[in-house]
Write a protein that binds this DNA or RNA. Structure first.
Lengths: 120, 120
DNA sequence: CGGTATCCTCTACGATACTG
DNA sequence: CAGTATCGTAGAGGATACCG
C-alpha cells in the first residue's frame, strides 16, 4: 500500500493512502457519482441531446450544474460536445464509447434502486 | 412529472422535481455513493469486520467518517452492527441481504474503473 | 440557445483530542 | 477497542441575473 503526505498552506498535513481494490471503487464513484452525473450519462444513452433539453430532462438541476458536470464528463472522455449550428446556436452532447461503457453499471443501479423503496 | 416547492427559513425557494427514471439513479447514488460508502460495503462482502479493522482497511478514512457512514448504512438497512463482547469491547459490522444485493453493482464498478486508467 | 458571472450558504470532510 | 466531542475549512451546490 503506497501512501503520500501533503502539507497545505497552513502547515496542516493530509495523508493520501493508495489502497487498491476499494480505491478503484472510490475512483469509479468520482467518475459516475456526484450529483446529476449518472443521470446525465443515462439520459444520453439513446441519442445526442441538446443542452437545454438536458437541463429540462433532469428537472431540478440548474444550467450551471449541468454545464459543470458536462465539462467534467468531457474531460474524462465520456461525453462529446458537438456544435450543430450557429445562428441559432445549437449544441448537442453525446456519449463516447467510454461513456457508453458505463451504462451497464447505471442500468444495474437504476433497477436495483427501483426494486426496493428506501425512503431517502 | 411531479414537483414540489419548499421555502426555507430565509424565504428562499427550492424546487424539487420528481422525475422518475434518472431519479432512481440519484436515489441509488445516495445509498451507495458518497465518500467511502461503496468501499465499506465492498470490504464487508466476505465476512463481518471489526470497526477499527475497517478504519485501517479503508486507509485514509478517519474513525469519524467510518462511524458516520456505518450509521447511515445501518439506517438504510444495508449493514448490521453486532456487539461480540464487552471487556474488551468488540463490535463487528456485516452486510444484510439488502446490503449484499448491492455488491453486484460495486463489483461491476470496480472492474470498470480498473479496466481503464483515468488519472483522477 | 447555450452558456457565464456573482454571490451566498450549508454541510461534508477532516484533524485532533478525549472517553468509557 | 469503539467510538464521541470540537472545531475548522474548502468547495459543492444553488438562486439569480446577465451576455453573445
Amino acid at each position: 500500500m503506497k501512501s503520500s503526505i501533503e502539507t497545505d498552506s497552513k502547515g496542516r498535513k493530509k495523508v493520501f493512502n493508495a489502497c487498491d481494490e476499494p480505491c478503484a471503487i472510490e475512483k469509479g464513484m468520482r467518475l459516475i457519482g456526484g450529483k446529476w452525473k449518472g443521470s446525465i450519462i443515462y439520459h444520453l444513452k439513446d441519442e445526442p441531446v441538446r443542452f437545454n433539453d438536458l437541463v429540462r430532462l433532469l428537472g431540478g438541476a440548474t444550467k450551471k450544474m449541468v454545464d459543470q458536470r458536462l465539462k467534467e464528463l468531457e474531460l474524462e472522455g465520456m461525453v462529446i460536445r458537438k456544435v450543430i449550428s450557429d445562428r441559432p446556436v445549437a449544441v448537442t452532447y453525446e456519449l463516447t464509447e467510454f461513456g457508453r461503457s458505463a451504462l451497464g453499471i447505471l442500468e444495474l443501479l437504476r433497477v436495483w434502486s427501483e426494486s426496493n423503496d428506501i425512503k431517502l
